[in-house]
């Protein structure tokens, strides 16, 4: 029995190593064929292209490294905002799906059903071309100003592209989060609802203070996957022309011809970003589980 499992492990390791060797070989062959070699010197050269939006000062005379950094920051901006908004929307919709109010329940059910059936790319294009680009100048008070130039929220200008990507990612991921929340909430015993109701707690308060904390251990692992999906899906931003990391890398690769280096940088950037997210979620998970264990 022991020997067989050892044999299996050696076999799997050899296969993995062989596969890796194949990839490295392909990389070397490709490098040889292009005759360029692996070189990152081009990162210091001026990019020569403009970016529609940048969190920090940027001009086309800045170098490629800076352009990529700006792209990374743009990605970070839309991902961070998307994570927060998708969570709020998802929890609200998930709660609504287990609500006793029939209208709320069917609204949330319809939202989840429709959004899950339509490809994200189509949704992004919808938000961009139909919802935001076509907006007439419609100032709503002094708080939000809508126009085809974008949205100004409390004096902070947001581009149409950013709004479309953010809305698309939020609405799409929110639907998946809603299902995860509903699953977690359904796993909490009915007696907990009866207990908080019989104490006169309102449905909202009972959900927040009693049900949700007990649903969290079931919700968090699946939620982490959705967060990582949202981060990865943000690369679809290129479809509506939002200058995220992928879009900037794409332009960079086209201009420099440095596809291998460009993709390596892209891979590493996303790896870093997602390690950040999953690391953060692992921390939250450990805290929640620790608290539950303490109560056991």
């Amino acid at each position: 029995m022991r020997r067989r499992s050892l044999l299996l492990q050696v076999g799997v390791s050899v296969l993995l190593l062989a596969f890796l060797a194949l990839l490295v070989n392909n990389l070397a062959v490709n490098l040889l064929r292009t005759g360029l070699g692996l070189d990152f010197g081009w990162l210091g050269r001026p990019s020569g292209f403009a970016l529609a939006e940048s969190a920090l000062p940027y001009t086309p005379s800045d170098n490629y490294l800076w352009a990529l950094t700006i792209g990374w920051l743009n990605s970070l901006k839309v991902i961070a905002a998307g994570l927060v908004l998708a969570t709020l929307l998802g929890v609200a919709a998930g709660a609504a799906r287990s609500s006793s109010n029939r209208l709320l329940r069917s609204l949330a059910g319809g939202y989840v059903a429709v959004i899950r059936q339509v490809p994200l790319l189509l949704q992004l294009l919808f938000w961009y071309f139909v919802a935001f680009l076509g907006l007439p100048e419609t100032p709503i008070g002094d708080l939000i100003q809508l126009s085809n130039q974008g949205i100004s929220l409390l004096g902070m200008p947001l581009s149409v592209e950013f709004c479309a990507v953010l809305t698309g990612l939020t609405v799409f991921t929110g639907a998946s989060i809603a299902e995860i929340v509903r699953g977690g909430v359904n796993a909490v015993p009915r007696g907990q609802w009866e207990a908080f109701r019989s104490l006169g707690l309102s449905e909202g308060l009972g959900f927040r203070r009693i049900v949700l904390p007990q649903a969290l251990p079931a919700i968090l692992p699946a939620l982490t996957s959705q967060y990582l999906n949202l981060a990865k899906n943000s690369t679809l931003a290129i479809a509506v022309g939002y200058a995220d990391l992928y879009a900037v890398s794409d332009t960079t690769i086209t201009q420099t011809g440095r596809a291998i280096e460009g993709f390596l940088l892209l891979l590493i950037s996303f790896l870093l970003l997602n390690l950040l997210i999953s690391g953060g979620m692992a921390g939250i998970n450990a805290t929640v589980l620790g608290r539950m264990r303490r109560s056991r």
Partner: peptide
């Protein structure tokens, strides 16, 4: 809601809140 504030209830399965 008014009734629940004035009527207490005890259940077979206790139904204490395990996380509190």
């Amino acid at each position: 809601c008014e009734i629940r504030r004035r009527v207490g209830m005890v259940f077979q399965q206790f139904n204490l809140f395990p996380h509190l």
